[in-house]
Design a protein around this nucleic acid. Structure first.
Lengths: 241, 241
DNA sequence: CGGTGGATTGATACTGATCAAGAGCAGTGG
DNA sequence: CCACTGCTCTTGATCAGTATCAATCCACCG
């Protein structure tokens, strides 16, 4: 159940064969039989920017794998203040096991492809397949690490350091290798969303973008296109290690 | 492996019999055999306030169960800024599975009793006992929920709301039942630690304590002793739901 | 009795929020 | 084809909340 060769295996459901996330995501832990069983209840779908996937405090009856795109997890205060508490990309797992009511909302940030299936189907597999649970555990641990890193950002960094941290996060996500070189990317979030992620206002985010540009840390083309000539310089601007 | 009766069972290791955390913590998933095996490598110890349990970025070779007391998880910036990224109580599990180097430091906040065992012993049990992994997964999910809730506190709340949130957190921990009534407790953290938890300075924390006292939300006796006459009022002061 | 560590309180400074105006750009319809 | 509209982003001026700096208090201890 740990290693297998199924690249040419016709037992793999059609639905799954083209899935780039299959080996990296939690599905990598599933046997052909399990994949087949899961795929019977699976719906592939796309969702566009701004579409709400989960409403905070609503009951959720399905989980999803993110196959492409980006999803933001949000928390809302009664008076409208909002905080983004997580950003997920392919091949992340979306959902909160062992709890029907969601603690946060989920909204599409950059157009996504999702692979959704009912909660109970996955949960019964969870009991039967320890490796699946292991993969889930590892993903949740990763998210916990990220959340705690972000607590440092939110609690102790200046506005400029926060924005640099955000850019650094995206840069590392785009290209996890060679941390030193230059990178270019499209921001998956609007200024307003970045502000909600960093606990700032739109105006402050905008000002810090221009400040970083004037410092030569980044170049900005259009609104979303960012060039980081030297990632080491960017990292220095975060004030963190 | 899901239900068992071992209250009077003499096969339960002596070390574990007196442990109040045994059924609630991850050990609740272990059979007598496993408990025995684990207990052979286990060291019970106490540690006093301010003692460092894990140094950030150091290698860790053991896990612990917290049997009593409180532990704070901290992150440090190169220039000395600090953020507390988690607070753990009995019967929490302390440690980061599947990773030898710690992402954060751990320091005793209120004198603790710990039950420590080598990483590899637990990890081999993890592979063999799915229920153990399940318990761990649930604990990590709980911590992730808490971390995200705290991201909202850090990112979007005012100083007064932050302090009220902290007091609310402690109050709920002391007495998870009847959320409406009054509670009295000793703070497990100093003002400086509370400041590090809330992303504030000592002075601001102190001012907000007096502000909440003047508002009649809390009463303060000595430095650490807090009385909350009405938890609903305190909750209102957090600005959150 | 002086010393030490933690907490409070006050005066002032500064970072980021708020309020306000305008620029850039895409889409729409006359 | 171009004015109009709506949206996002930027920039400027001012305000407010929290940090910083400094003094004092308090409890405890040697």
């Amino acid at each position: 159940m740990t290693e297998r060769e199924d690249v040419h295996n016709s037992d793999v459901p059609v639905l799954c064969r083209s899935c780039e996330a299959r080996h990296k995501g939690i599905c990598g832990a599933l046997s052909e039989d399990e994949l087949l069983q899961l795929s019977k209840h699976t719906v592939k779908r796309t969702a566009a920017r701004k579409q709400e996937l989960i409403h905070e405090e609503d009951e959720v009856h399905s989980y999803s794998n993110i196959m492409a795109g980006a999803v933001k997890l949000t928390k809302l205060m009664p008076d409208g203040r909002q905080q983004i508490v997580g950003l997920q990309f392919a091949p992340d797992f979306l959902g909160r096991p062992f709890q029907s009511e969601s603690n946060f909302g989920a909204e599409v940030a950059a157009d996504v492809k999702l692979c959704s299936f009912p909660k109970d189907v996955l949960e019964s597999m969870l009991g039967a397949n320890p490796e699946l649970e292991n993969r889930l555990l590892r993903q949740v641990l990763k998210e916990l690490d990220e959340a705690r890193q972000w607590m440092l950002v939110l609690g102790r960094m200046t506005a400029k350091e926060k924005v640099a941290s955000f850019l650094s996060l995206i840069a590392n996500h785009i290209d996890p290798e060679h941390e030193g070189d230059s990178v270019t990317f499209e921001l998956p979030l609007s200024r307003a969303e970045i502000a909600d992620y960093l606990g700032l206002t739109i105006e402050t985010v905008s000002r810090q973008f221009t400040a970083l540009r004037k410092d030569g840390v980044i170049e900005i083309e259009g609104n979303r296109h960012i060039v980081v000539p030297d990632r080491e310089t960017l990292k220095d601007a975060t004030g963190s290690t």
